[in-house]
Lab assay of single mutants.
Amino acid sequence: SKDTIRINGIDIDVKDLHEEWKRLVEEALKRGDEELAIELLERALKE
């Protein structure tokens, strides 16, 4: 798994994120759902 995830052309540092969150965000991006990916990231970062 990578340490960054690219959303809207912005590389976001996710190395401190739990693997499960990372996977969910990557799944959302694979489906092209950037809005969901951002929402998941925000939730993950609050934890």
Rank of each mutant, 00 (worst) to 15 (best):
R31S: 08
R43D: 03
K30F: 14
E34T: 14
K46D: 07
W21S: 04
E39D: 07
V25L: 13
L24E: 05
R43M: 12
T4C: 07
L40S: 01
I38Q: 12
E42A: 12
L17F: 06
E47L: 11
D33R: 05
L24M: 11
R23F: 06
K15I: 06
D33W: 06
V25D: 00
E35I: 13
I5T: 02
R31Y: 08
T4D: 03
L40F: 06
V25Q: 00
D11N: 06
L24N: 02
E39T: 13
K30A: 14
T4I: 14
V25N: 00
V14S: 03
L36M: 11
A28L: 07
L29N: 01
L17G: 01
D33G: 03
D13P: 06
R23Q: 08
K2I: 13
K2M: 13
L29S: 01
A28Y: 06
E26Y: 15
K2C: 06
R23T: 08
A28W: 04
K46Y: 09
E19W: 15
S1V: 12
I5S: 01
I5V: 11
D3N: 10
E47Q: 12
K2L: 14
D33H: 08
L36I: 05
K46F: 09
R31V: 09
L45W: 12
E20Q: 13
V25S: 00
I38N: 06
V14K: 02
L17T: 01
A37Q: 00
K15A: 12
V25F: 05
D3A: 06
E35Y: 11
E20V: 14
S1I: 13
L36P: 00
D33E: 09
K15F: 09
E34G: 07
E39Q: 14
V14N: 01
I12L: 06
E20N: 15
K2P: 15
E20L: 13
W21V: 15
E35S: 12
K15E: 06
A28I: 03
D16P: 05
E42G: 09
S1N: 14
A44I: 04
K30S: 14
T4E: 04
G9W: 04
D11Y: 08
D11F: 06
G32A: 03
E47Y: 06
E42H: 12
D13V: 10
E20T: 15
D16V: 07
R6A: 06
A37M: 03
L24P: 02
G32W: 03
K2V: 13
E39W: 15
G32Y: 03
I5H: 03
E26A: 14
T4M: 09
I12G: 01
A28N: 00
E34K: 11
A28T: 03
L45G: 06
E27F: 05
S1Q: 11
E27L: 14
H18L: 11
I10Y: 11
A37D: 00
K2G: 14
L24V: 05
I7L: 08
A28P: 00
N8W: 03
D3V: 10
L40K: 00
D16Y: 14
V14A: 05
I7E: 01
R43T: 06
L17W: 06
D13S: 12
D13R: 05
E47H: 09
E20R: 15
E19N: 09
G32K: 04
D16L: 11
L41S: 01
H18W: 07
R6G: 03
I38A: 11
K46W: 09
D3W: 01
K30D: 10
A37R: 00
S1K: 10
L24C: 07
H18S: 15
R6E: 04
N8I: 03
E26I: 15
V14T: 05
E35D: 12
V14E: 02
T4P: 05
K15R: 13
A37N: 00
E35G: 13
I38E: 05
I38D: 02
L24T: 02
I5Q: 02
K46N: 10
G9C: 05
K15T: 14
H18D: 12
E20C: 06
K30Y: 14
I10W: 07
E47A: 11
R23S: 06
I7Y: 03
L36F: 08
D13H: 09
E35M: 13
K46P: 03
I10D: 04
D11W: 08
L45D: 04
E35R: 15
A37S: 01
I10Q: 10
A28S: 03
E34A: 12
E20F: 15
L45A: 10
A28F: 05
E27W: 09
L40Y: 09
A44Y: 13
R23P: 02
K2Y: 15
I10G: 03
L45K: 13
D33F: 08
E42L: 15
N8P: 02
D13W: 12
D13E: 07
E42C: 15
I10K: 12
R23L: 07
A44R: 01
E39M: 15
E20G: 13
L41D: 00
D16K: 10
K46L: 14
L29Y: 05
L45H: 09
I38L: 13
R31A: 14
E47C: 14
A37G: 02
E47K: 05
K30I: 12
L41A: 04
V14H: 02
E47W: 06
G9Q: 04
E26Q: 14
A28M: 05
H18V: 08
E42V: 10
A37I: 04
T4H: 07
R23M: 09
L24S: 04
K30V: 09
W21N: 02
D33C: 07
D11T: 08
D16E: 10
R43W: 09
E27M: 15
E47T: 09
R6M: 10
G32Q: 04
E20H: 15
D11M: 07
L29R: 02
R43A: 07
E19K: 10
E26F: 15
L36E: 07
L36V: 06
G32T: 01
D33K: 06
L17H: 01
I12Q: 03
A37K: 00
I10V: 13
L17K: 01
G9S: 05
K30C: 03
L40H: 02
K22W: 09
H18Q: 10
K22Q: 05
R23K: 10
E39N: 12
E19R: 09
H18K: 11
N8S: 06
E39L: 15
E34P: 12
R6D: 02
L17D: 01
K15N: 09
L17Q: 01
L29E: 00
G32V: 01
A37V: 06
E47V: 09
V25M: 11
N8Y: 05
L36H: 08
D33I: 03
L41C: 02
L41Y: 09
E35Q: 14
V14Y: 07
E34Q: 12
A37T: 02
D11L: 08
K22R: 15
R43P: 00
R31N: 10
R23A: 07
